[in-house]
Design a protein around this nucleic acid. Structure first.
Length: 565
RNA sequence: UGGGGAGUGGUGUAGGGGUAACACGGCAGAUUCUGGAUCUGCUUUCAGGGGUUCGAAUCCUCUCUCCCCAGCCA
């Protein structure tokens, strides 16, 4: 058992909990829950909530349940409950034996409904959906009471039992709470507690044909599980009076406190199930786990680590105001993690052939390369060097601008862990004039990368020996949107009008150092100077596919950009 | 025009009567066998008006702006 951590960065929710602990509320217990509806895949917004709920439990020596909020059989599927469990586990959280389903409580909900009917606090209403909307009133005008509001307890009991028995068709009746049709809070205008739905539920099958609504089911679920702090997002703020109303009327022992926080928005991406579906169906991405998606599965496939995401969740904080977090912070978090953990490797994404004309044709040397300068414990490896190499196209410029330090005609640079080379000749395509091969000389005295006299070069570039290289495909990703805010679009258009149509660039024929042979999906590397890459699940047999998780910070790219202006 | 929330630098989060802090970003520089990492410095803020006070981001008051709510979705 760990001691509660009161020292970690606090937030308004933890402040409330600390106060409750101080005053001995809830017998000094802390119990939260993460309650997704299994109707879609989790995204990084959910990760914020997961980290919050499980994190609070951990900080205060409490517990956090995982609960499927499965009260709507028409939308929920087992496929989703499995993916949700996988994602939560992957993020590093453990609900132990506390995996719950709202559907497990259906009988309890029913009993409670009976109780409310007997107390005259709930009634069966025969209004159609359209009529009910009409009776509800508007934001500014009060509603009208349903003509069925005055039914006797006996009649209500009879009708409700028959609703359960399946005597009535979908939509013909509802069970409603009897509260106040004139309330300024529309949620309190006799909200529906049960609707008739002759639909198979993924867990209860055809046992039920009436299903409870969120507001009714959620508070009771929390109460049953002994939740102390029921944390949800801002849009439920004006549902809180109803949450409290049900629990007060039912006189339950455990009455959790609902606390609302602002959901996460991330710049240059979308964050709602509806928009994700539009992306998938519109063919903008290949699926829920497309590495450009901010779904947990997408981020995982992209090469993000649970550590980075947890760290991100901590850095963004928790508050009540609407905000848009700069995606640069997420990128910072993954770079921070991978910088410490990812082995370095040399990979040429856009190869340019280089012949070292004064190097023997049949010779191969094994150069020592450091696996991770941030972590000497990760050791070294041998990288083969020979006469014909590949370097990055971007590392050569025939007419280098002033700030360009890399290879150019007549200029000397260092090949990382190998030799200094000087470009003495360029071979061009007759027709296009494009440089297709470089002839260079090397200085044998610089073996390993250092000149004996302390001679300096301005750049070190990576390379791969042509004869020893393995081929791979690299997928480079860019933001999904061309603008930070998905809703900042022209009148009448939606986020699809600001899609970045170049968010995926596929590079084939990349040349990798041979140590990457047989790398397995999920393996993460830093391709030196190019970014962090992760083996994609599309890899098979000898075919290697890499996702670029995130590029390295690139000062040269910035300089070049301002140069172009 | 009803009800519920929220306004602190470019972004996010602290500070809750004593003169605004941390992180990311941006910009410089140092350093470096990754134009990476690291280090240093700079950048810029309390929505507005009035009031209380020796002193207000903080308390009071008025105003403005933004977000959410009219599913038998969650």
């Amino acid at each position: 058992m760990t001691t509660p951590d009161f020292n970690r960065p606090s937030d308004f929710i933890r402040d409330i909990i600390k106060e409750d602990l101080r005053t001995g509320k809830n017998n000094s217990r802390v119990h939260t829950r993460f309650p997704p509806e299994p109707n879609g895949h989790l995204h990084i917004g959910h990760a914020k909530s997961i980290c919050l709920n499980f994190g609070i439990a951990k900080d205060f020596n409490g517990l956090c349940n995982l609960r499927m909020d499965d009260t709507n059989p028409t939308k929920e599927e087992v496929e989703y409950v499995e993916s949700i469990q996988q994602d939560v586990r992957w993020l590093g959280f453990d609900w132990q034996d506390r995996m719950y389903y709202a559907s497990d409580y259906f009988e309890r909900f029913y009993e409670c409904a009976l109780d409310l009917i007997r107390k005259g606090k709930a009634y069966v209403c025969d209004l159609s959906a359209d009529k009910m909307r009409e009776y509800r009133g508007t934001l500014t005008a009060p509603g009208k009471e349903s003509p069925y509001r005055g039914r006797t307890v006996e009649e209500n009991l009879d009708l409700f039992e028959r609703m359960r028995a399946g005597e009535f068709p979908d939509g013909s009746r509802t069970l409603r709470a009897k509260i106040d049709m004139a309330s300024g809070n529309i949620n309190m205008r006799d909200p529906v507690m049960y609707r008739i739905l002759h639909a198979d539920h993924h867990r209860t099958g055809n046992k039920w044909c009436i299903y409870p609504m969120y507001d009714y089911a959620h508070c009771i679920s929390d109460s049953i599980e002994g939740i102390t702090h029921s944390i949800c997002t801002l849009e439920f703020e004006d549902h809180r009076p109803l949450y409290d109303w049900f629990l007060d009327e039912l006189k339950v022992e455990c009455h959790p406190r609902q606390i609302e926080f602002a959901r996460l928005n991330l710049s240059y991406t979308v964050m709602s199930k509806r928009k994700f579906i539009q992306l998938v169906e519109g063919g903008f991405v290949t699926g829920w786990d497309d590495p450009r998606m901010s779904t947990i599965s997408g981020l995982r496939r992209r090469g993000y680590t649970p550590e980075a995401i947890r760290n991100f969740a901590e850095r963004i904080g928790v508050a009540k105001r609407d905000s848009v977090v700069d995606i640069a912070l997420l990128e910072y978090c993954i770079r921070e993690d991978l910088n410490k953990t990812a082995p370095r490797v040399m990979a040429v994404l856009r190869p340019l052939k280089v012949v070292i004309i004064n190097y023997p044709e049949d010779k191969t040397e094994e150069m020592d390369a450091v696996n991770n300068p941030e972590d000497p414990g990760m050791g070294t490896r041998k990288v083969p060097f020979s006469r014909v190499l590949y370097i990055e196209k971007d590392d050569f410029r025939e007419d280098p601008p002033k700030q360009f330090f890399r290879l150019a005609p007549g200029r000397e640079v260092r090949l990382r862990y190998a030799y200094f080379i000087t470009c003495v000749h360029t071979v061009k395509d007759d027709k296009t004039g494009e440089v297709e091969e470089l002839h260079c000389t090397y200085d044998p005295a610089t073996r390993g990368g250092d000149a004996p006299g302390g001679r300096k070069v301005k750049a070190t570039i990576h390379w791969v020996s042509a004869d020893h290289a393995i081929d791979a495909e690299a997928r480079l990703y860019d933001y999904l949107l061309t603008q930070p805010d998905p809703d900042d679009v022209e009148e009448g258009k939606d986020f699809r009008s600001i899609m970045n149509l170049n968010s995926l660039e596929i590079l084939s024929g990349c040349k990798l150092e041979r140590s990457l042979t047989g790398a397995k999906p999920g393996c993460k590397y830093q391709f030196e100077r190019m970014g962090y890459f992760c083996v994609d699940t599309d890899s098979s047999g000898g075919r290697l596919v890499f996702n670029r998780t995130v590029s390295l910070k690139d000062t040269w790219a910035k300089v070049e950009k301002t140069l172009k202006k």
